[in-house]
Amino acid sequence: MDMKLNVQSSPHIRDNISTRLVMLDVVIALIPASVWGVLRFGLNAALVIIVSVLACLISETIFNMIVKKPNTIDDLSAVVTGMILALNMPPEVPLFIPVVGAVFAIVIVKMLFGGLGQNFMNPALAGRCFCLISFAGPMSNYKSALSVDAYSSATPLVLLKQGSEVNLFDMIFGYTPGTIGEISAVCLLIGAVYLLVKKIIDLKIPMVYLISFTIFILIFSGKTTDVNYILGEIFGGGLIFGAFYMANDYTTSPITMLGEVVYAVFLGVMTGIFRLWGKSGECVSYVILMGNILVPLIESITIPIAFGKEGK
């Protein structure tokens, strides 16, 4: 028998999972929220999503060409970045803004730091915040061509700040103004359940984030018994979107289990502080970026104790 056998070190089998499949599942999970955003806000919303995704793919391709590296867009992470960036944009934003955001997210935040997995901030959120600062006006104009209801352009968080009541049904099902992807808690949660079932995400970061935020505002808002207010804060703004799709981004959240809890509590408390005492109601993006920056520190102090090394 003259056979040629492959020789590698163990293990000799691998789980049927790859970075690409992970990213594909996130794209699938974002579809309900994207479709709802387009249905709700119309053509420009669809264009924002398409332009943002394309801009991400193209800027990653060009960057790889310039630095003479193999193209990496087939891992689909640029598609995820493009979608999350687009879903964080107001519906009537001029189309050059998502392009600027995409280039910033991919080139500055991701590729310059070494590409996928090397970035220290969530690229889509950094791109969004870059646009928020650079184009404050169009980025916070939530008027929509299609929304003709009473709230017109006042987002639920603005109403809550003014002390008005909010319509919880509209918030949960997505009939309020807001960014393209954040308005429908139901659509976002459908995607989140999909990711949970496929074991792409687990509940730790999202739930600890939401619970610590809720406890914080229950204590400090002075409106502990106002159910409309408390639920409005939870379902308002980008909190649900942030908690299930951005705070738990693999690369920019802690890898240690205790670290995940510390990080999520930090996000919850900071979101509470900004929501209660900040000027703008919208703070989830900034808070998550702040959390991202703390991740290396959190990880370094939460290395788990190895099995059998307890008490030493």
């Binding site: 790859s18 970075t19 992970v22 090397q118 693999y250 959240s253 890898i255």
Partner: peptide, 8 residues
């Protein structure tokens, strides 16, 4: 591919 820090 690159490590994405997924924690698996």
């Amino acid at each position: 591919t690159n490590c994405i820090n997924c924690g698996r």
